[in-house]
């Protein structure tokens, strides 16, 4: 390749991102090289540098700005600090926030127990969760790990640890998607919906 070195470096950097192959990486790079893109280049560079200042919230382990020990949710005095929703990833917090109905706090595990990837309890923020619950005040923990094998294994493990502490432990219900068609629901989902049906 006879491209100038800075261009090659930019392409390689883009290609290192998930979901971006060499073609997309070149396209992005050449888009940024256009004269009109000068401002965008600066904004991007600044934004990416800004990511270095992001830290973990010391309570829930979601992301927070540097210099702030707690994230906006944990700082909010109107939220119920006796209710904790446990999720795998920070993006899961965003998803639940978008529903607009949850007024408690969160705890981000940063993954799920995965025997295949060798991720055990010590690799997740599980000890921190227990410490939070043991400190008092918490009356319910909602486990919102993914409905996958790994997510379920994590949920069961957490339940075992939390149940002896005398608090309420719940798990997100499994059911049919809104606007879905019963006929096309897969067996496992339908089975879950039947088992976890609700009295009207």
């Amino acid at each position: 390749m006879s491209l100038p070195e800075p261009i090659q470096r930019a392409i390689e950097a883009f290609a290192a991102l998930p979901g971006i192959g060499p073609k997309s990486a070149s396209r992005l790079t050449f888009y940024l090289l256009r004269e009109q893109s000068a401002a965008l280049r600066d904004t991007l560079a600044e934004a990416i540098r800004g990511l270095n200042d992001v830290a973990y919230c010391q309570q829930c382990f979601n992301f927070t700005e540097a210099g702030q020990p707690l994230c906006p949710v944990c700082r909010d005095p109107h939220r119920d600090d006796g209710l904790i929703c446990v999720v795998e990833e920070p993006l899961d917090v965003e998803a639940i926030e978008r529903t607009g109905v949850y007024r408690g706090q969160y705890h981000v595990l940063h993954g799920a127990l995965s025997p295949i990837e060798g991720i055990g309890p010590d690799d997740l923020k599980i000890r921190e969760l227990l410490a939070r619950v043991q400190a008092g005040r918490v009356h319910e923990v909602i486990i919102a790990t993914n409905p996958s094998m790994e997510g379920d294994a994590t949920a069961m493990y957490l339940h075992r640890l939390l149940a002896p502490l005398g608090i309420k432990v719940t798990r997100l219900a499994r059911g049919l998607p809104v606007g879905g068609d019963l006929e096309y629901a897969d067996q496992n989902t339908l089975r879950g919906a039947l088992v976890e049906r609700k009295e009207m």
């Binding site: 025997p115 055990g120 309890p121 010590d122 379920d152 294994a153 069961m156 075992r160």
Partner: peptide, 11 residues
């Protein structure tokens, strides 16, 4: 490496 055997419960 050792570890908590309770992780086996689910499996």
């Amino acid at each position: 490496q050792g570890g908590d055997p309770a992780q086996l419960d689910y499996w």
